[in-house]
Computed example of a mutant assay.
Amino acid sequence: MLLSRYQLTLYSNWGKPLLTLSANGLALLFLPLLLLVLAFGNGFLAVHWHQWRELKSYESALLEQRRRLSHDILLQTSALNEMENQVVRIVDFNTKLRIMLNIADSGDDAASLALSPRDRLGLERLPALYGRNHFRAMRMRLDRVDGETISEEVRQQRIGHAIAEQLETLATIPVIMPTRGRFSSPFGWRNDPFNGGRRFHKGIDLTAPTGTPVRAAANGIISHLDRSPSYGLVIVITHSSELSTRYAHLSKVAVVEGQRVLRGQIVGFVGNTGRSKAPHLHYEVHQHDKPVNPRNYILQ
């Protein structure tokens, strides 16, 4: 029976033979086993093909995630470089301010800065390739930027205090014209208008109509207010331990002794009192109790 030959014919729906197979009984016995092996192999390949496609999809997703991560790290690195450059500019600016304000630290004269400007050289490489060393370096750079920022905040507070103190000092320097008028007599030796002899003129004379406002040349305190035969109605303003100003021949005053005044504040009015031939303001500047040329101080 196993050696007998068998014939298998496949017909179409119309009765036409399509395929005829001829085999002995032994071959037919192994045919189901062959079909089973083929079916199992086909299933095995299908499963592995599906797993391979899932792995390829997962690999593509990982590569895309890595690309985005590398791009983000590149942007963060560039931003960190800009932060460092900004700190460099702040440190440099504050150093120059401290030198100008005479409050410089020991290393400021040499302008030795803690950081130096960075550029984008090498940033075209993907930072993600650097691994943990790159992130450790970024962390150290961020800590350094934080430390520099805190230090500069402290230094800026010192700069603010120094500016406030120096502005207060500048406000006590008599730099404005005390009244509107024309120069009629300079500082120094001149012929006395009363007796024609040589006499030292301690200030300058500004000719102006009676009643023209006279203003304080700087912040200070009215330290003396009096009437004398030579100066007439006179005011003395003490601005600091070094500087004081005197306003003489006034017609009347607008302040009292001991009053604090500000630069530009009206303290009196031009007159013709005391040893004077015509309405004018006699204006003096004293430095360490010695008269100096007021025109060396006037900036306008």
Rank of each mutant, 00 (worst) to 15 (best):
T238A: 05
L243N: 02
H249T: 02
L36W: 14
R98N: 07
I222A: 06
T9Y: 01
E242R: 15
F183W: 11
R98F: 12
R136H: 13
I150H: 11
T169G: 06
S4D: 12
H224A: 13
E153I: 06
G220A: 07
V175W: 08
V234I: 13
W52Q: 08
E64N: 08
R136Q: 15
L113V: 04
L29P: 01
P127L: 03
Y247L: 06
A171G: 08
A46Y: 07
A110P: 00
G232Q: 02
R144I: 01
Q86D: 09
G25A: 15
S251F: 01
N195K: 04
S276Y: 07
Q157C: 06
L3H: 11
Q7L: 05
Q86R: 12
A61M: 04
M138C: 07
I237K: 01
K96F: 07
V87F: 00
F269H: 13
I222D: 00
L299A: 12
L26N: 08
E84D: 00
N133C: 01
G258A: 08
G264H: 04
E165K: 13
G131S: 05
T9H: 00
S276H: 06
S112F: 10
L55S: 13
M100R: 10
E148T: 03
E168F: 03
N81I: 09
A248P: 02
E82N: 06
W189V: 06
Q65H: 14
P117A: 04
F187K: 06
L74C: 09
G203I: 07
R263M: 11
S241T: 11
I163F: 10
N195Y: 01
D92C: 00
R118A: 09
A217V: 10
Y247P: 05
L3I: 10
N42E: 03
D105T: 04
T245K: 01
M177V: 03
S12K: 09
G196N: 13
I99Q: 11
K202Y: 04
Q265E: 15
H280I: 04
R5D: 09
T207Y: 03
I159Y: 05
L63R: 15
D108Y: 03
A39T: 14
R260L: 08
S22T: 14
S70L: 03
E64H: 10
L233H: 05
V270G: 03
N13R: 15
L35A: 14
A137F: 09
T9A: 03
R199I: 13
A164L: 09
L262I: 11
S184W: 04
L243C: 00
F30W: 11
W52F: 05
I173D: 02
P279H: 08
P178E: 03
G160P: 00
L299W: 09
G15M: 04
L121G: 07
T238H: 01
Q65S: 14
E152T: 10
L129Y: 10
L18S: 01
W49G: 15
L167H: 06
N13K: 14
A79T: 05
S251K: 04
H249I: 02
R246H: 02
